[in-house]
Every structure is written in structure tokens, then in C-alpha cells.
Design a protein around this nucleic acid. Structure first.
Lengths: 105, 105
DNA sequence: TTAATATGATACCATTTGGTATCTCGTCAA
DNA sequence: TTGACGAGATACCAAATGGTATCATATTAA
């Protein structure tokens, strides 16, 4: 069913959203990500795990280092979910249009 | 400023996302929303408060009832945030294009 | 080989979160 | 006027969450 819950959950924390922005340009190891925050490496690692569970990043091992990479298809499920509301907005606009037309008569 | 945190937080709970889907077609009172869930009205009310804090719904009083309405501009901040990654994807595609061209030489 | 380094894993803690129960306050109707 | 009804508010509880400290493991380098 491709549950979007882990994705929405992952995006709910500001630190995790900052990590994602940070990973736009370059892949980073856990230590590199942790340098940018005022918290322990262990805490950052937890955030990275949540991001991975949400399908937002993938991890590539290279020797003793783990490079975290932003997933190109990361936000597709969110966009899909948001699209459930598109027809609604259209209907609202139609209602408005009808009301205006009726008003003009 | 326009902090997106309350919005992301509001969307992180599956019950709240279901409420939003439910409100697409019609405005509903707290009791009406609560009918659709296996939890107390008080719990539903809490969810509605979080949704309101996130700017996702507005509440209109009518007598002793409160009608909850989906906010038309609800998802704009999320779309804005997601757009921060658009240039990144473009750059990735450019990289890919360059690599292919170099490969073709 | 041995020490330093990058990460994994786990136990633990305080706070937040999602939920119930309960009481109070307006508003509507008999 | 007097209940009944819809909603607000608060106290309380269990579980999830974000964080630290600490120890173990694997890899690199001297």
C-alpha cells in the first residue's frame, strides 16, 4: 500500500528537515552531518535512521564510513497525497463560479 | 518567517490526515468528525486544535456548534518547502546529462 | 600488531504526544 | 425555566520521541 506514515513522521522534525536540506548538494557521513548540529552523533544517527525509514535517504557503505544520500524519489508519496485535495479545490472553484453566475442573473 | 513546523507536525498523525480528507467535501462539527473515529470527542477536538494550529482548518461558530472547514491555502507552505529541492534535482539531471555526453564522446 | 577512528547498539532519562475521564459553560427546545 | 445537548478545559495516564552516556565492532593507519 506504500504507507506514507513513515515519510510524514520523518518530515515532522525540524532537525531532520535541516539534514535533508544539507544533503541536497553532497552526500555526507554521519560525522559530517553531526558537525552541523549541537547534539551528539548518536542523536544524529537516530534522525538518519528515521529519514531512512521514511525513504528519504539511502546509505552507502564505503570502508568504515557510511555516506547518506538524498533519495531522488523522496517526496513523491507526499505529492501524491496532496493531490487528493486537488479535485476538491476545483470543485470549490466551480461552486464559486456558479454562485457568481447566479448572482449576476 | 512563517514557520512550517506546526503544519508538518499536524500532518504527521494519520488520524489528522484522515480528518482532512474527510473535510474535503463538507464542513463538519466536532461531533460529526468524532462519529467517524473510535475515540472520544475530546481526543478528536485535540486533533482539530493541532490542525488549526497548523493552519489547515478554520473554525466557524454557529450557535452552539463549531463547523470545521478545510483551509484552501493549507498546503502552500509545504509546497514551498518542497520546492527547495527542485533546483537540486535539476542539478542532478544536469550531472547525469554531462556524464552521458562525456560517455558518448 | 596496535592504536585511532567511524559507526552500531543499548540502556536510560525527560518531555511530548495521543488518549480518557470529568467538570463547566453556552445555547437550544420543551 | 429547566433540562438536554454541543463544546471547552483540565487533570491524569501510558507510550512514543528526542536526547545522552556508554560500550562494542569494524576498518584504517602508524
Amino acid at each position: 500500500m506504500n504507507e506514507p506514515q513513515p515519510l510524514f513522521r520523518a518530515l515532522a522534525d525540524p532537525t531532520r528537515r535541516d539534514i535533508l536540506l544539507m544533503l541536497r548538494g553532497t552526500d555526507m557521513t554521519i560525522a559530517q552531518v553531526a558537525e552541523n548540529f549541537d547534539m551528539t552523533r548518536a542523536a544524529v544517527k537516530k534522525h538518519l535512521t528515521v529519514l531512512s525509514d521514511g525513504g528519504l535517504i539511502t546509505v552507502r557503505a564505503q570502508g568504515r564510513e557510511r555516506y547518506n544520500t538524498l533519495n531522488p524519489n523522496a517526496f513523491a508519496p507526499i505529492r501524491d497525497w496532496l493531490s487528493f485535495f486537488d479535485t476538491f479545490w476545483d470543485a470549490r472553484l466551480d461552486d464559486l463560479k456558479s454562485a457568481i453566475e447566479k448572482d449576476a442573473q
